[in-house]
């Protein structure tokens, strides 16, 4: 294998890691609080608020139902405002983040809903405020589930990032398409797929490890 291919793949890997890493962190920072809001404003929850819940829910659903490749193009003006440009790896972070926020917030909402309502009741009986319930009960009790949610999001973002080539974002997926598909370089395609499989495997294992470490239950499963 020529050194150019290795260099090419290495650069692409770095681009993928940059895009996925940055958009994961940004989407977690926005998506987790959004998930919390979605959960606590639900009917019969600690801060029940039908209108907020409905508005956020609709926005989240709308974003989630837009195919990523379309979202990528549609929000180009917005990307330009945020990133200063609409082309390149940094610019690709914007649509990736926008796509991942609703995804992560729904997952987090589901994880929080799984927390035993008895615990919320116990905290209320102790005189806990809604904010204290979120910080001291909901998030700690759901932390293992949230780690799993983040793992799923990162892996999902790796998939999305393959499409970032459309806006010149680069990355492994882009190399796979340009060299493997358009130039019939089968070995590059195979290498890209292998690297992606390994990458996903590593992330999944790390995620599982931390999720398990944070679960304080009998370890049968």
């Amino acid at each position: 294998m020529s050194t150019t291919i290795i260099e090419l793949l290495f650069d692409a890997l770095l681009e993928t890691i940059l895009m996925v890493g940055a958009s994961s962190i940004l989407s977690a920072l926005i998506g987790i609080p959004l998930g919390v809001i979605l959960m606590v404003t639900c009917e019969k929850q600690i801060l029940e608020n039908k209108s907020i819940n409905r508005i956020l829910g609709t926005v989240v659903n709308a974003t989630r139902s837009t195919p990523f490749i379309i979202l990528l193009v549609v929000i180009i003006p917005f990307t330009r405002i945020i990133a200063g440009t609409s082309i390149g790896t940094i610019a690709a972070i914007v649509p990736l983040t926008i796509a991942a926020i609703p995804f992560i917030s729904r997952l987090v909402e589901a994880s929080l809903t799984k927390v035993d309502t008895g615990l919320i009741e116990a905290a209320e009986a102790m005189g806990a405020s809604p904010l204290q319930i979120i910080v001291k009960v909901l998030l700690p009790e759901a932390r293992s589930g949230i780690v799993t949610d983040l793992t799923t999001t990162v892996i999902n973002l790796i998939g999305y990032s393959a499409m970032a080539g459309v806006v010149g974002g680069g990355g492994l997926g882009d190399v796979g398409i340009r060299y493997g598909y358009q130039r019939f370089c089968l070995e590059v395609m195979i290498l890209v797929v292998i690297i992606l499989i390994v990458l996903v495997q590593i992330i999944q294992s790390f995620g599982d490890f931390f999720a398990k470490k944070l679960t304080k239950r009998s370890t049968r499963s």
Binding site: A122, A125, G127
Partner: peptide
């Protein structure tokens, strides 16, 4: 504030697993 003067225990204990 008033609830702090009233303790409560439950059938399923409701302890935080974490």
């Amino acid at each position: 504030e008033a609830r702090r003067n009233i303790g409560m225990i439950f059938q399923h204990f409701n302890l935080l697993s974490s």
